[in-house]
């Protein structure tokens, strides 16, 4: 789905969301009572220090407001921008700061919902979609840590061999189904149904603690993580 169609399906009562420099900003009305703040990265933009800081600034100002308006983060990005300048200026700090801003908004009472409708990769994925309190996706979304040709280069395996291996496990290859199986994504929404109804249903359900490892276990894509984390936690507590 294109952003314009996503926004009109989410906000039948209207919205004021604008795009500038690959970033989305504004708000929409889910119904007469509920206004939703919107931020986003669109058009496969690669966020660097400038974009990450602009997004974080907006999110922190929302976090600082006393109302409980939900925050929707639309994501169609590349990976983090790969450049000398971005690293010189401390991109790791800036992306971490963006992740912290999203966490802070959630803690301050604003549900943070990531809606992955296009691409996202690597550090950009961690600091945007994966840093939201809840992450949903639309079919056609294409999250990846690294594309298979690059992975082939790094692992020194042929693309054909990688594709063959990818058929047997969701653990390394790109794509929505694989990320869903590992527990990264709460729900894949149905584009044929009004998105506003699906968002309302998500907001009506309470969000628990980070349950993503449990989903990975249920879905068979990441079967050890939950038990390992629990066992370390148990041992630490037992040891005092």
């Amino acid at each position: 789905m294109r952003p314009v169609d996503i926004l009109s399906s989410l906000f039948p009562a209207g919205h004021q969301v604008t795009e500038a420099g690959g970033l989305l900003s504004g708000n929409g009305r889910l119904d007469p009572q509920i206004t939703v703040d919107v931020v986003g990265i669109s058009g496969k933009t690669y966020p660097g220090v400038d974009e990450a800081l602009a997004l974080a600034g907006r999110i922190l100002s929302i976090a600082d407001r006393p109302d409980p308006a939900p925050l929707l983060f639309l994501v169609d990005s590349g990976s983090q921008r790969m450049s000398r300048r971005d690293e010189l200026m401390g991109l790791s700090e800036t992306l971490a700061h963006l992740a912290k801003a999203l966490w802070r908004a959630e803690q301050a009472g604003h549900r943070t919902i990531g809606l992955l409708y296009g691409g996202s990769a690597a550090g950009a994925f961690i600091a945007t979609a994966l840093a939201c309190g809840s992450l949903v996706a639309l079919p056609g979304a294409w999250p990846e840590v690294m594309d298979l040709p690059s992975m082939a280069r790094v692992t020194k395996l042929s693309l054909d061999v990688l594709k063959e291996k990818a058929a047997g496990t969701p653990v390394f290859a790109p794509g929505l189904d694989n990320l869903f199986a590992t527990g990264a994504i709460a729900e894949i929404w149905d584009p044929a149904r009004p998105l506003c109804d699906q968002l309302k249903a998500l907001l009506a359900a309470t969000r628990d603690d980070d349950g993503r490892a449990g989903w990975g276990l249920e879905r068979g894509g990441r079967v050890k993580a939950a038990a390992i984390a629990q066992e370390v936690q148990r041992l630490a507590l037992a040891h005092g």
Partner: peptide
């Protein structure tokens, strides 16, 4: 990669 990326987020 997918398990590792998600682990970092966790």
């Amino acid at each position: 990669a997918n398990a590792g990326e998600l682990a970092i987020s966790e």
